[in-house]
Computed example of a mutant assay.
Amino acid sequence: MSAIFNFQSLLVVILLLICTCTYIRSLTSLLDRRKTGFLGTFWKCARIGERKSPWVAACCLIMAAMVLFY
């Protein structure tokens, strides 16, 4: 089943995207050049990960527990 049709899988994919973009932005300035368009989505995900990091971390822990125990 695709992640689009399964809500829990969609949330996991979104959280992984946010965490990955934030990690890439912390290593390089690769995402800073493209702030608009389709590639701007990755920059926006990195900004969400930076500004809401305690919330994103809590969501990652909750989703990890859900994946492990369900």
Score class of each variant (00 low, 15 high):
residue 24 I to A: 12
residue 53 S to R: 02
residue 67 V to T: 08
residue 42 F to V: 09
residue 59 C to W: 08
residue 66 M to G: 15
residue 21 C to Y: 01
residue 27 L to R: 08
residue 43 W to H: 15
residue 17 L to T: 06
residue 68 L to S: 10
residue 13 V to I: 13
residue 69 F to W: 09
residue 68 L to C: 10
residue 68 L to T: 13
residue 67 V to Y: 04
residue 5 F to H: 06
residue 64 A to Y: 00
residue 38 F to D: 00
residue 13 V to W: 10
residue 24 I to P: 09
residue 33 R to V: 05
residue 56 V to C: 01
residue 57 A to K: 02
residue 2 S to Q: 08
residue 40 G to R: 01
residue 8 Q to K: 11
residue 5 F to D: 12
residue 57 A to S: 10
residue 44 K to W: 14
residue 17 L to V: 05
residue 37 G to I: 14
residue 23 Y to C: 14
residue 51 R to A: 01
residue 33 R to Y: 08
residue 12 V to L: 13
residue 2 S to D: 06
residue 11 L to F: 08
residue 9 S to V: 01
residue 41 T to D: 02
residue 44 K to I: 11
residue 15 L to T: 03
residue 64 A to W: 02
residue 10 L to W: 12
residue 64 A to Q: 01
residue 17 L to E: 05
residue 24 I to H: 08
residue 6 N to Y: 04
residue 7 F to E: 11
residue 61 L to N: 11
residue 62 I to A: 15
residue 39 L to F: 13
residue 70 Y to H: 10
residue 65 A to G: 10
residue 7 F to S: 03
residue 60 C to H: 04
residue 16 L to R: 04
residue 13 V to N: 10
residue 50 E to L: 03
residue 69 F to M: 14
residue 16 L to N: 07
residue 45 C to N: 14
residue 18 I to W: 10
residue 63 M to E: 09
residue 67 V to M: 04
residue 4 I to F: 15
residue 66 M to W: 13
residue 55 W to A: 01
residue 30 L to D: 03
residue 33 R to A: 13
residue 5 F to P: 05
residue 23 Y to Q: 13
residue 15 L to N: 05
residue 65 A to W: 05
residue 22 T to E: 14
residue 65 A to F: 07
residue 48 I to G: 02
residue 47 R to E: 06
residue 69 F to T: 12
residue 70 Y to F: 13
residue 8 Q to L: 10
residue 28 T to S: 13
residue 30 L to A: 11
residue 37 G to N: 11
residue 67 V to G: 00
residue 44 K to Y: 12
residue 55 W to N: 00
residue 55 W to K: 00
residue 8 Q to A: 09
residue 10 L to C: 12
residue 2 S to W: 06
residue 7 F to H: 07
residue 19 C to I: 13
residue 20 T to D: 04
residue 13 V to Q: 10
residue 35 K to H: 04
residue 66 M to L: 15
residue 69 F to N: 08
residue 3 A to D: 00
residue 23 Y to W: 15
residue 46 A to Y: 01
residue 59 C to H: 08
residue 25 R to Y: 05
residue 24 I to C: 13
residue 39 L to T: 13
residue 1 M to I: 15
residue 4 I to M: 14
residue 23 Y to M: 12
residue 4 I to W: 15
residue 58 A to V: 00
residue 19 C to M: 15
residue 24 I to D: 09
residue 10 L to R: 08
residue 41 T to Y: 06
residue 68 L to V: 15
residue 53 S to W: 02
residue 41 T to V: 08
residue 57 A to D: 00
residue 70 Y to T: 11
residue 20 T to R: 11
residue 69 F to A: 09
residue 5 F to N: 14
residue 10 L to S: 10
residue 23 Y to L: 15
residue 70 Y to M: 12
residue 60 C to R: 06
residue 45 C to I: 06
